[in-house]
Structure formats: C-alpha cells, structure tokens
Amino acid sequence: MSDTYAPHEFQYSSAEHQAGTALAGMWLFLATEVLFFGGLFLTWIYARSQNLAGFDAGARETELWIGTLNTGILLTSSFVYSTGLAFARVGNNRRLMQCCFAAIGLGLAFLALKFGLEWSGDFDKHLWPVGPDFKFAGEPTEGGARLFYVFYFIGTGLHGVHMVGGIVLVAMIAWRARRREFSPLYVTPVEVVGMYWSFVDIIWIILYPLIYLIGRS
C-alpha cells in the first residue's frame, strides 16, 4: 500500500478509527480469555487447597527443566515478535517477516518440547490420571494426584490449543508482510496479533508455577 493513504472499511470514519476499534476488540476478547482461564485457575487452586498432599506428590513428578526451558522459549518468542512490530512501525516488512518466522520457530519448539517430549514421557510414567495404571494408584495421595493430573492435562492442552491458534495468526502476519502490506500508517493487524501472542505467554506464566513450582519442595 502507499505510504500516504491507509484504506478503511466503510463502517469507520477513518483508518485511525478502524485501528483503535480493532485494538479495543482484541482487548475485550482477551478479557473473555481471562475469565475462561480464570475459571480453570480458580477450580485448580480450590481443588489444591482441598488435596494438598496429593497435589504436591503430583507436582514432584513433573519435568521442571522442560517447563523452565519452555518458559524461556515462549518469552523469547514474544520478544522477537515485538521486535518485528517495531520493524513494522518503520515500514520494514522484510525484518517483520523474519521476526515472525523466528517467533513461529520458537512456538513450534515449545510445542515439540511440551507435547512431543513431556507429554509422551508423562504417559510412559503412567501419569495419565484415568484408569488403574495410574502411578499413584493405591497410595493415600492417589485422589489428589489424579486431580492434579486432570488439571495438568486440561491446562496444558488448552494452552497448547491457544498456541496453535497464535502460530497460525503469526504465520498470516508473515504472509502479509511478505506481500509488503504493512507501512508506518498501517500496522494494526501486527499489533492485534501481538497482543494475543503475548497473552498466551501470560497464561503460561500462571500455569508454570501452578504445575512445576508450587508444592515441589
């Protein structure tokens, strides 16, 4: 697009009007996500308070190094994407595209570690909470540990679904950057996707201590 004129949809009065509206929409969407995950965290913390020993026993079986490494990977991915946004603001579509690819690469690394390595290890260690094979079966902490792993699999699974959605969105930004669609006057989609991508981190920042840290000692 040209550097002097940014188009807008017919229901808005100007490109700025459209941009502000899109950001408002994403903020509100993130508010719904907060309530969605908020419900999960509330039940998680409540269930933990009722079953401390079981949750602690469950938490000790988690792979701390994978969780910690993944935290670093995810935060780096958001940092890289934000760098891309800064490039987009000065009209550098090429650098934006490269940043998107890096962010996607890091996101895929997270998923590979989480689901390829960690989940399969969990299944091997009989940590899937359903059925008589469960590692803690027969022990006094069985119930709480089962609950912990119910939350563990639902929580990481939901977060993974959001990661996949985010990766698709970042890929779309990369595609549009390749077509040189962004300019200093038009970076809204980059910003909106960035908000979502960072939000996925924030969820992880709460999941990380809930899974790996609390009750480990």
């Binding site: 509100l28 508010a31 719904t32 996500e33 309530l35 969605f36 995950f37 908020g38 419900g39 999960l40 039940t43 639902i154 939901l158």
Partner: peptide
Amino acid sequence: VLATPVLAITLL
C-alpha cells in the same frame, strides 16, 4: 462477555 467464558470452562 464476562460470564459466558466461565460457563465454557465449566462445561469443558
């Protein structure tokens, strides 16, 4: 917007 997500996670 604020209540429906709670139903969603509950039903999940």
